[in-house]
Design a protein around this nucleic acid. Structure first.
Lengths: 209, 209, 209, 209
DNA sequence: ATGTAAACGAGACGGTACGTCTTGTCTTAGT
DNA sequence: ACTAAGACAAGACGTACCGTCTCGTTTACAT
């Protein structure tokens, strides 16, 4: 969705707000049924009850459309306050895994990431709409853990940012890899093991599971 | 590449061994120039100096072809013996990051993973050709660390397998996410930080970088 | 060319009228250069400056297209009034022979007739577009000869139709066979001999040529 | 079938005589089932229990093969002695019509004639194998009619040849056009009408049918 | 009996065209 | 100015045949 400057009352028939919603919903439905590679913009337009022209007027192509359709899914994520850092991490990872279990996310997310390796504008759009937007969970979680005394307060803000990035890559990467590449469920047992490694390191795995 | 039963001398003209090599090389070249979504099998055939039919006789489609072309890249990975578990991990992660920095891997790998979310046969092929094949690095690395006394020996073999899977998901996932999603280089500094978290846990990050 | 019901203003962009003309002309040009069997629809589309889809939207295949392209050639035929039945026949047969001497007619006509032996819809299309349309020449010629008193008026209309069919088969068949099978020119001398046989019968051939 | 110079015992394995027979029969069977345009040499080879190479060793392509396969059909034609020229003509025309009613002849004959408009070697082959070979019927029929006194003896041999060609074109052309273009049966009634016109001319049609 | 040479079956090969599909643009008429 | 509908140019898709080739095997004749 490209922002229209002041959205001030421009001449002519205004754009239908309902169309945007219908198109994004139709995109997700098509992702579920067909997957990314068999999804066609003509089909999405038909499902949304909209002409292809309308669709192209608002998005420049399939990739941008899918990014927007998928990005909405991740806005559901909430950081629960379960009383401890470990419990908080487990909670948010399980939510993340649940989203990745939905076919519209599975197929769409990896596809646009793949496309973004050759399209800088697309990569920036993904970063804005998905990555940076969810990084808030790491920042909040760490602040809460520091308040509880579970983690030391950081000194250098640049260092803090670098650390947040690292944690985000480790957490998101592990869940995505488990779910999409290894194709195994990120269930409660796995999440507990993962959280222990994250907090204590590999050495902690020696003892009881 | 599908295994021909015993390759026993069947009647008719035998398949050209050179064609396989040429096709896979052409596929990688096309991935570099065009990326996955603009790669066409007709173009690959032309680059390889081969007819489209020859290509379809050996691979059932673009996805299978790209899996094979990309899988060969990861066979270069070696587990160096650098004297400590941390150093070994850093070494192999840097190699992995170097492969993911190559455009033929970046574009191809995520795309086939995306496709595999809707194609079980493809997912199995990826697992066989890439995931399980490289999991050897985790197994070897752990054995070496246990020999050094850096990690406790495992007792339950089922548990050992589960742990290897977890480590693989964490390592591979983090590097892939850093490289392709966050689109930041997995350079020596990042690899050191990552390895420290992996071995010691989040708490270790408080002190000096 | 399939008639669109009332061609009433249907929604959407109307079909380009220029495309039809360009396609049929391109088809004839391709018949001249390549002949029927090497004519490809992709090539016709390119020559006409039109996409293949546009072509397939209007014709169901090569045969239908060639029938339409060839049929237009025969619409040039005119029945001259040369004062006698013999002279009229000679005139129209020479025109017919001249058309069959053109490569776009030679190659196309026989080919679609051959195809029509296994395709009833195609046969009907040929009959409508070519055969029945030119049968007018026989009907007009006979009426004129009857007006001159050269032929007796017919009594039974069904019999008249049967006779017109017979004459058409004899005339068209002889010229086609001479031109395409025997591959000899249907020149003035031949046409004179043929007309004499047609009017007077084989016995008339005994005397002077 | 290209004649091998002296067929003298050349070295090496001799060509299988059975293969020729099987291939021509398979060609006719394929013409019946598929028609000319869908007949493929690979399919003919399979039907004949023969490799494609064997087929190409003997015929240079589809057209040559079909000419040979169809030519054999016309060798069945016999000139009956029914006592009068009219009866003789009717007899042989009915035989000719019967052959053209068979699907292997219908589809194949016109197709190769169409192809021959752009291939001089093919036209010559058709003339040799089919046209000139059956022209004997005209020559014999005329000789018999002259012996009976129904036709005057010819004086100029060149003129006689020209007349035989004309008659052949008229008879063969009319039957082919009736059968394949008009797609009406050349039944006894039609043959009687046609023979009357041929012998007596158009004027004879005025009276009773 | 052995050697030589061509024909044989099988099927892979480089090509070309097929008819369909999707893309992104364009042109109409209707709102 | 916006919409729905659909035609348009472009070009990839995966399949089918083409006619050629490369195999290993078979069949004849001439030593």
């Amino acid at each position: 969705m490209q922002s229209r400057s002041p959205a001030a009352s421009r001449p002519g028939r205004p754009r239908s707000a309902a169309a945007d919603t219908a198109i994004l919903a139709a995109t997700r439905a098509a992702l579920v049924e067909l997957g990314w590679s068999k999804l066609t913009l003509g089909d999405v337009a038909t499902r949304a009850g909209v002409a292809k022209t309308t669709l192209y007027r608002r998005w420049s192509g399939k990739n941008e459309l899918v990014v927007d359709a998928v990005a909405e899914l991740f806005d559901e994520l909430r950081l629960p306050d379960r009383g401890s850092l470990a419990a908080d991490i487990e909670g948010v990872v399980l939510q993340f895994a649940a989203i990745l279990a939905r076919p519209e996310a599975r197929s769409g997310l990896m596809a646009v990431v793949a496309e973004s390796t050759r399209d800088d504008a697309l990569r920036e759009r993904i970063r804005e709409s998905i990555v940076e937007r969810q990084k808030r969970l790491v920042v909040e979680g760490r602040a809460r853990a520091q308040a509880r005394g579970e983690l030391p307060p950081e000194t250098d803000p640049a260092d803090a940012a670098r650390t947040a990035d690292l944690i985000f890559d480790v957490v998101a990467g592990a869940v995505v890899h488990r779910t999409l590449v290894s194709a195994e469920p990120a269930d409660e047992e796995w999440v507990r093991s993962f959280t222990r490694v994250l907090l204590l390191g590999l050495g902690s795995l020696g003892g009881a599971a």
